[in-house]
Design a protein around this nucleic acid. Structure first.
Length: 586
RNA sequence: CGGGGUGUGGCGCAGUCUGGCAGCGCACCGCGUUUGGGACGCGGGGGUCGGCGGUUCAAAUCCGCCCACCCCGACCA
């Protein structure tokens, strides 16, 4: 490609609203342009990089038996009603009507369509296992897009779906993905870890998320260096402190004027936060078929711990949770700031599993200005649900080995889910087994967002001068710079390199050397070749790798061979990072 | 949805407080000089100042409503 006619140009300054490195560099280098909040165009450079990424995905999917197909972005709502997600998912799912007023949706993922195809195409156990995948646009009306391509509303995802006759088959395909995903990320030049994760709106039984660790990330992970436990905070377990097994003392009402927070309460009474009980009110949304209802949830934790909403949502089976309004709290007879589980009616009470172990806590009295001492679970009140609903924090103890864990931020670049029969049963995707008995297909679902991956690669590989692409995903292999006196030779080299299958971005513009070199650094192609009067006087062309400082002059006659050798070395370096990763899961 | 912020040429910004010719740098076009790390001179093109309404002799500037985008939180693969 000749740069003089390339669509998209570099910018000397990043737009003011780009804050993260990947966002700034991808815009400045001419890879992406924003159209709206969370909506981006890929310019030719960006699209070429995405294409490389997607071909790596294809390669690894094909290697584990994947068959590529393509499913629509616009779906009739029926299948989403069948799966129930029409009712369970909120504003993230965009709905609209066609001209006949039929309900339609924009695909936020494709489980429903796969289940529909499966019930049409799969009849016999003899056809299984199978694996299908596609690379297709998704639309998720995320409440808060941010950080360039890291979190967007419209994006492209490679999603694959495994179809099996039983759980053992699913496990096998799940493990195949587990490794194939590491291969994809390693080939694309980015380090990731796999953590255990919540299944969220996907449903199913078990999931891993692939996390690229970076401060820019918005997921918090709990990691144990000692035994290797790794989990998203949404579901991270931890070893809770041993509580004192004291005798239950007599309930005692104490005056606590203007003491409405745990902090203030502990200070006022001069006790540890761990000796208090914290009340958190949330409204949960529940879907039963097409009936959606809201219910107030009263969560009780020890005062030194924070609520984990994902854990609570899973414990009560709610689709959505939101903070309760003050009038909703008062409506059940509770007093905000002085709320107590004692004497509350018609509320779903959930207590953290540490609460029954903890004797003589201080809790609210359901009366403004008063708390109760020596509140004991079982004696003074009971809950419908006792579960782990506390959030793991940095320094909390590993559930497996008891060592302190540390918290780290990460971006989720991929995920794998064991769906089981969550879609095949409601949608009737069944097959006949060896005994002629009808069975639901056992499904798995596996996704990687290609744009987010591109952004993470940019986040990982840049310096003060711009992007530094791994050769596997670089839009071109070579950045060929022609300077004064080298134009004709550069033209010839451009043709020779392309004839050997080398992808070349050729800067033949009438620009000063400084501009050309800076643009080359900004765009970040792995191999830079400069042809100038100076280089020719020195015997040939100058070669420089983007990720190294040294420049070497190679003989004109060896130029093509040297470029090919450099390309192979860079490819081999990346390939060396593709290693087997021990499976860490159930 | 709550809090904060920003909207002036392709990008970065000044001008708004205190109403009075719409500016600067970069980018772009032409001519000339320059040519190995974001050159220089001269000349030029491009903006209904986010939108609508109001106040005023006069609005980028004051008032009202709306919209868009960004950040934090809520929320969420």
């Amino acid at each position: 490609m000749k740069m003089s006619h390339m669509f998209g140009h570099t910018l000397r300054q990043a737009p003011a609203d780009a804050e993260t490195a990947s966002h700034q560099w991808l815009v400045r280098a001419g890879f992406i342009r924003q159209l709206g909040a969370g909506i981006y165009s890929l310019l030719p450079l960006g699209y070429r990089a995405i294409d490389k990424i997607e071909n790596i995905m294809r390669d690894e999917m094909d290697a584990i038996g994947g068959q590529e197909l393509l499913m629509p972005v616009v779906h009739p709502a029926e299948i989403w009603k069948e799966s129930g997600r029409w009712y369970k998912i909120g504003t993230e799912l965009s709905r609209f009507h066609d001209k006949n007023e039929r309900d339609m949706v924009l695909a936020l993922t494709h489980e429903e369509v796969v289940a529909d195809l499966t019930r049409k195409e799969v009849q016999s156990y003899k056809q299984l296992p199978m694996l299908v995948y596609h690379i297709q646009t998704k639309w998720r009306d995320d409440p808060r897009p941010r950080a360039g391509l890291i979190r967007v509303r419209e994006f492209t995802m490679k999603d694959s779906y495994s179809l099996d006759a039983d759980a053992a088959g699913l496990d096998k395909q799940y493990r195949a993905h587990y490794q194939a995903y590491f291969n994809i990320f390693h080939r694309a030049g980015i380090p990731v870890i796999a953590v255990q994760a919540d299944v969220g709106m996907m449903g199913g039984t078990f999931a891993h998320e692939y996390m690229y660790l970076t401060a820019v990330g918005e997921d918090t992970l709990l990691l144990c260096d000692e035994c290797g436990y790794k989990a998203n905070r949404q579901i991270a377990r931890f070893r809770k402190p041993k509580a004192d097994k004291a005798e239950a003392a007599e309930l005692e009402k104490v005056e606590t004027p203007n003491v409405a927070t745990i902090e203030a309460l502990a200070n006022f009474l001069n006790i540890e936060k761990a000796q208090t009980a914290k009340a958190v009110f949330l409204m949960g949304k529940f879907a039963e078929g097409d009936e959606v209802s809201e219910k107030l949830i009263f969560a009780v934790l020890r005062g030194d711990m924070d609520l984990n909403e994902t854990k609570l949502g899973n414990a009560v089976g709610a689709n959505e949770l939101r903070a309760a309004h003050e009038d909703e709290i008062k409506a059940v007879g509770a007093v905000p700031g002085y709320a107590s589980p004692i004497g509350i009616q018609d509320v779903l009470v959930v207590v953290d599993d540490l609460i029954p172990e903890s004797a003589n806590l201080v809790a609210g009295a359901n009366e403004a200005g008063y708390h109760l001492r020596n509140v004991n679970y079982g004696r003074d009140y009971e809950a419908q649900i006792v579960a782990d609903i506390a959030s793991a924090e940095d320094g909390y103890l590993c559930p497996d080995c008891g060592s302190p864990m540390h918290a780290s931020r990460g971006v989720e670049v991929g995920n794998i889910f064991k769906l089981g029969t969550d879609f095949s049963v409601p949608q009737g995707a069944t097959f006949l087994d060896e005994n002629g008995k009808e069975q639901p297909v056992v499904m798995g679902s596996y996704g990687i967002g290609s744009g987010r991956l591109l952004a993470c690669i940019a986040e990982e590989h840049h310096d003060e001068g711009g992007l530094v692409w791994p050769i596997s995903v670089a839009p071109y292999h070579v950045h060929l710079v022609a300077l004064r006196g080298g134009e004709d030779k550069a033209d010839a080299l451009y043709a020779d390199l392309r004839a050997k299958g080398v992808e070349v971005l050729y800067d033949e513009r009438d620009e000063s050397p400084g501009v050309k070199f800076n643009d080359a650094d900004l765009i970040g192609l792995p191999i830079r070749v400069t042809v100038s009067k100076r280089s020719l006087d020195e015997g040939g062309v100058e070669m420089k790798l983007r990720n190294a400082e040294e420049r070497t002059i190679v003989n004109w006659d060896d130029a093509v061979a040297e470029v090919l050798a450099a390309k192979q070395r860079l490819e081999a370096e990346l390939q060396a990072a593709v290693v087997e990763v021990p499976y860490d899961g159930e």
